[in-house]
């Protein structure tokens, strides 16, 4: 929330890097994915597919690394604080967020005036971030299920049978991408609605005092 200093302890350099990798991979995946979905200019299919597979492996490795790092890297768990603790604390239920979920929803729906007390990540924010983890793995799964060399593997073929064929799997893959696009829109909007200081710390690792 605004009004708080943004210190490097909130986002240590390693998470600034993983965030960059996520962003670049997501852009590459969405762009090449749109191209594979419907090639809107000629001469790029081989590159688009190569880019899609490469970025997918990178983002999966990056995500897995990020999860492991949550147990080893120390970050601030409070807004505007230099006091650090193991990062996983940020992702478990926190005392400061208790009883605040509906208040947060009310705040964003303009049903209350004052800002809501929260930990570094508010309850709504935390849920949205955590939801991207299974969604990313699910997207990789649906991707493998429509990818030539792996689509016949029992693990992937079983999912294809479950959803009623490869065409349906393709449509699901397409819609999950749109979930990511809408997530990114909301994420970029909410992160920067008060000022651009959150972007300065997460992209440039530049501290600001409010």
């Amino acid at each position: 929330m605004a009004g708080q200093p943004h210190y490097r302890e909130a986002h240590p350099l390693v998470f600034v890097m993983t965030h960059w990798v996520n962003l670049i991979c997501m852009i590459m995946l969405a762009f090449s994915g749109f191209y594979i979905h419907f090639p809107f200019f000629p001469g790029f299919m081989g590159v688009a597919r190569g880019m899609h597979f490469f970025a997918m492996y990178v983002i999966i490795i990056n995500l897995t690394f990020r999860i492991v790092a949550a147990f080893t890297v120390k970050t601030a768990t409070d807004l505007g604080s230099r006091e650090v603790d193991t990062d996983i604390k940020n992702w478990l239920p926190q005392e400061k967020n208790k009883h605040q979920f509906f208040e947060t929803v009310k705040y964003y729906l303009f049903l209350r005036k004052e800002g809501v007390i929260s930990a570094k990540y508010g309850s709504l924010q935390k849920m949205a971030y955590l939801a991207t983890i299974p969604l990313t793995y699910l997207q990789a799964y649906t991707g493998f299920a429509i990818y030539g060399p792996t689509m016949k593997g029992g693990f992937f073929a079983a999912g294809t049978t479950l959803v009623g064929g490869p065409m349906n799997m393709r449509i699901i893959h397409y819609f999950i991408m749109w979930v990511f696009i809408v997530f990114t829109m909301i994420h970029a909007y909410l992160a920067n609605i008060y000022n651009f200081n959150p972007s300065k710390i997460i992209f440039a690792w530049k501290e600001t005092d409010h």
Partner: peptide, 11 residues
């Protein structure tokens, strides 16, 4: 600078 903050949770 954002909204005025609550001093204690509503709960």
């Amino acid at each position: 600078d954002g909204p005025p903050m609550e001093t204690a949770k509503k709960y």
